[in-house]
Design a protein around this nucleic acid. Structure first.
Length: 589
RNA sequence: CGGGGCGUAGCGUAGUGGCUAGCGCGCCUGCUUUGGGAGCAGGAGAUCGGGAGUUCGAAUCUCCCCGCCCCGACCA
């Protein structure tokens, strides 16, 4: 393949586009790889489409190598299957809906669980046919509330989605592991730096779902990783280790004190330290000595509203994402003034455990942070305006109805696996593997006969890779201030060959080299533009990011051609007769 | 959906009520130039996001709408 810049459909931009913020978006637009046509909808230009296809082909090759079979569904789908699983409704505004000329409802597929399930149901009916894994690489449509960051989060994007079908849980586990392995080789081959995080809290089902996150500052998922071991998890899934119980036998009896005007933790800590009768002799009080009690209104799927109180150390906030994950499928709403009016026992700013709990005066369910173990002593609200209780000991003076692990996770928190310090990082989800179980098979009645002639419901897994997103993720991880730097396997070409100057010999030598490289199966982008200054060509080559740059120019007269590494910037002059072999050596390395 | 910023030629931008909407990049023609985004000369390219209004006069002021970007909410 020889792409000639003189005729290539490409226009690079000297300035950053004003609407692009993140590096991948900026550079892909500047480099002429993509153009926006609508919010979250992009056109791939020739160079961009080459990169995209390279990524797609790597994904396909790895899926095929794992023994999965490729199929291809339409993107345009009828309503009925999605009606059966209730997703026509559940998907809400995110679903692109349309009607045909007769007024029948259609949708543009946001994901294809229903279609795969129905396809298998139509073809297979015996355990002997399983296990089965089929996949597709398809354009998906989701009318996201906020597409952002160019290719990274679009409304039209390409996803590889596969589905596994097994008769039993052990089979599902095996299919899941096969995908996990295939994903590792895929992302390794794509040159991505990523972590695998468990996507669900341990309480909800162990390793049933894991996400592959490409590490990048502009990612939208927060996760933690351990600085000491290989633990990594979504913030929602982090399990706070409960400390050992403390001996509190020498703690004095709890005593309530007047603490006027202390509705916040900060004001409470200040007054506790500044008044001699309250201050500690050994050290100052801190927010971590206080027990904050936060009340939420929990709304279940039927719409029933139940208050829930959460007690946690005063220096931490409740993390709303963690709370949502813990309460799912119910959701949490803030406790409004009107709700306080309904529950006069709750004194805003001075709520204490005394009245909380299903058995207590308020009847409000009261859950404690795992750090609040038996024997820990706290300063907490006395349920009277302007009063707090000191030396209030968990287990002795109060108990909760259970624990809930929804406090914010902070850098430096203890790793649940080894106790090391956790660090926070950001990533973008490029893959997700998920043990679906029998949800869709049940809804769509996918059953097979087992070896005893009995009907059993098939168990499924679903596994996705964001193919177009992976292109952006690679760009995000692999660039410098001059432009993109593609890993060779996804680069639009192996060699960016530049002819500079106006001497005919230069262009003849370059054209000849291009031919020989092409004949050897090396992909060449050849800058054969006449009358374009060397500076422009060099800058373009750095912006476009092909890993090896070869310059035929003024040193040709001395018998040399320059070979440059895009990433390191290292350049060497190579004798004309050696250039071909040197390039081949670089490509084989 | 909430908060913030913004919308002028393909791209980046100037222009706070008054002349024919200015500049840079890119594009076209000619000449010169060729190792780090060249020079000179000439040229094409704009319903100033849309609509309504105020005014003798609107890119500029008012109202409504549309769209974009960022943060948050939401999100297989």
């Amino acid at each position: 393949m020889i792409l000639r810049m003189s005729s290539l459909f490409l226009r690079t931009l000297r300035d950053d586009p004003a609407d692009a913020e993140v590096p991948s978006h900026r550079l892909l637009v500047r480099g002429g790889y993509v153009r926006r046509v609508a919010p979250g909808v992009f056109t791939w230009l020739p160079l961009g489409f080459l990169v995209y296809r390279n990524v797609e082909n790597i994904v396909r090759a790895e899926m095929d190598a794992a023994g999965f079979q490729e199929v291809h569904f339409p993107a345009l789908l009828p309503r009925e299957p999605y009606e059966e699983t209730n997703r026509w409704t559940e998907y809400g505004d995110t679903l692109f809906r349309l009607q045909d000329r007769k007024g029948a409802d259609y949708l543009l597929g946001p994901t294809h669980e229903e279609m795969f399930t129905l396809l298998v149901k139509g073809e297979y009916s015996s355990y002997k046919d399983l296990p089965l894994v089929i996949y597709q690489i398809q354009t998906k449509y989701r009318d996201e509330a906020r597409p952002r960051a160019g290719i990274l989060r679009g409304r039209e994007f390409v996803m590889k989605d596969s589905y596994s079908f097994d008769v039993d849980d052990a089979g599902l586990e095996t299919s899941y592991q096969r995908h996990r392995d295939a994903y590792i080789s895929t992302f390794d081959r794509l040159g991505l730096e990523y972590v695998i995080v468990s996507a669900m809290s341990g309480a909800m089902g162990g390793s049933a779902s894991e996400e592959f996150l490409a590490m990048t500052e502009v990612g939208e998922d927060s996760f933690v990783r351990c600085s000491a071991c290989d633990y990594a998890a979504n913030v929602e899934a982090v399990v706070t280790p409960a400390p050992a119980a403390v001996d509190a036998s020498d703690v004095p009896a709890a005593h309530a004190e007047d603490t006027p005007d202390t509705p916040t933790i900060e004001t409470l800590v200040d007054i506790s330290n500044s008044r001699p009768d309250l201050a500690r002799s050994d050290r100052a009080w801190s927010g971590a000595d206080t027990l904050k009690n936060v009340v939420f209104m929990v709304v279940d799927p039927e719409g029933n509203r139940t208050p829930l109180a959460i007690g946690l150390p005063g220096d931490r906030e409740v993390d709303l994402k963690r709370l949502e994950a813990a309460l799912s499928p119910s959701i949490a709403e803030p406790f409004e003034e009107a709700d306080f009016d309904q529950h006069p026992a709750l004194v805003k700013g001075y709520i204490g455990p005394g009245i909380l709990g299903e058995e207590a005066a308020s009847g409000i369910r009261y859950l404690l942070d795992p750090r609040v173990v038996a024997g820990t002593r706290w300063i907490t609200g006395a349920n009277e305006k302007g009063r707090h209780v000191y030396d209030f000991v968990a287990g002795r003076d109060f108990v909760g109805d259970g624990t809930i692990d929804v406090a914010e996770v902070r850098e430096g928190d203890a790793c649940p696996s080894c106790g090391g310090a956790l660090v926070l990082a950001r990533g973008i989800e490029i893959g997700h593997i998920f043990q679906l179980g029998r949800k869709y098979a049940e809804a769509l009645d996918l059953k097979v006969l087992d070896e005893n002639g009995k009907l059993v419901t098939v168990t499924m897994g679903s596994y996705g890779i964001g193919v177009s997103r992976a292109v952006a993720a690679i760009a995000e991880q692999s660039h410098d201030d001059r432009g993109l730097i593609w890993p060779r396997e996804v680069a639009p070409a192996d060699i960016h060959l530049i002819a500079t100057g106006k001497a005919d010999e230069v262009f003849e030598a370059a054209a000849d080299l291009a031919q020989r490289l092409d004949a050897a199966g090396i992909r060449v982008l050849y800058d054969d533009r006449k009358g374009v200054s060397p500076g422009v060509k060099f800058n373009d080559s750095e912006l476009l990011g092909i890993p090896t740059i070869v310059v035929v120019g003024k040193r040709l007269a001395d018998g040399f051609i320059e070979v440059k590494d895009r990433r390191t910037g290292e350049r060497e002059d190579v004798a004309v007769e050696d250039v071909f072999d040197v390039i081949r050596g670089i490509l084989e390395a």
